[in-house]
């Protein structure tokens, strides 16, 4: 008996005990499955939460999201198969014509994760650990960043001055990191991807610039950076707009001799870098390889076939 069948059986028993009508089993009960601790809160004046942390059910977990909350599917086997064929939230069940509580709360939790990732800043300790100094675009805060993509495509004066002063110029490859729309993506991936790219480039004998971090960065600011530092290939590792399934997705955008105002079609992108997509070490090796090919072919984007 697998987990779904077990849960279906428990739901059935609960439904009978409660005299509930088919299809209307409160899903809140389903979330108690697996927990051995039941509290008789109503009879107690002081409730002590002594449930061990490792017995808590995480409603954001893959297992909970995969659960089928329909009390009595007509064809249980087919329902399981359907659930496996898509990551859409099917088998959701219902409370009247509304979502079950756990489905609604999981959706809200996933959205909250995504929102927090957009609005949080990258941890300074991580940037220190990675030896990344920071510069800023012309945006002044997150809201300004979200509403003015034009300002996120240009460095502020201080940022230009810092890059002029601290960065090696005329290199073959300039790699840098930027928050984009997900700080969590930077935090989840940069420790692995940046060293992987740098060591890959070193093994190819490609000269590299000084990596740094750009706060409030849009993809297009790489064009100004490329011009300023006179890099042959510029590569930014940037946090992508979070989806509900992951807030940790990073992309690498690369261009050969990027210039301000060049067509978007001149960029090459490696997307979906996160633990359930292309993992960051693998992605790092791939990006280094793309840079090598770009230098050899002196092209990028639609002009380059990989």
């Amino acid at each position: 008996m697998d987990q779904n069948q077990l849960e279906a059986l428990i739901r059935e028993v609960v439904a009978e005990v409660m005299g509930a009508k088919t299809g209307d089993v409160p899903a809140a009960l389903v979330n108690d499955v697996g927990s051995t601790v039941k509290q008789a809160a109503a009879q107690s004046q002081t409730v002590i939460d002594d449930i061990p942390d490792d017995e808590l059910v995480d409603i954001c977990s893959h297992e909970v999201r995969q659960r089928i909350l329909i009390a009595h599917p007509m064809d249980t086997e087919m329902m399981d198969r359907m659930r496996q064929m898509t990551n859409a939230r099917i088998g959701a069940g219902r409370a009247g014509s509304r979502l079950n509580t756990v489905t609604m709360l999981t959706l809200r939790a996933n959205h909250a994760q995504a929102r927090d990732s957009v609005f949080s800043e990258v941890d300074q300790a991580l940037l220190d650990e990675m030896n990344l100094f920071s510069v800023k675009t012309r945006c002044t805060d997150k809201n300004n960043y979200l509403t003015r993509p034009d300002m996120g495509r240009r460095l502020d004066d201080e940022g230009r001055a810092i890059l002029e002063q601290k960065c090696k110029k005329h290199v073959q490859a300039q790699v840098y990191v930027s928050d984009g729309l997900s700080s969590k993506a930077v935090e989840a991936n940069v420790r692995d991807i940046l060293p992987a790219i740098m060591s890959g480039l070193e093994s190819f004998g490609i000269s590299t610039g000084t990596p740094f971090f750009v706060e409030y960065g849009r993809v297009g600011v790489m064009d100004e950076i490329s011009e300023l530092l006179d890099a042959e290939v510029t590569c930014v590792l940037l946090g992508e707009r979070p989806g509900l399934s992951t807030a940790e997705s990073m992309s690498a955008y690369l261009a050969y001799r990027a210039t301000i105002g060049m067509p978007e079609s001149r960029r090459t992108v490696v997307s979906n870098i996160h633990k359930d997509g292309i993992n960051s070490v693998e992605a790092g090796a791939y990006v280094a390889e793309i840079i090598r090919i770009m230098l050899e072919k002196k092209a990028s984007g639609v002009d380059l076939s990989l």
Binding site: A88, R89, A92, L99, L107, G243
Partner: peptide, 17 residues
């Protein structure tokens, strides 16, 4: 869409409910 989450377009709209 299923429980408001569009797993292809990565945005949220109305659920089937």
């Amino acid at each position: 869409i299923p429980a408001s989450d569009d797993v292809m377009l990565n945005y949220q709209t109305n659920s089937y409910h």
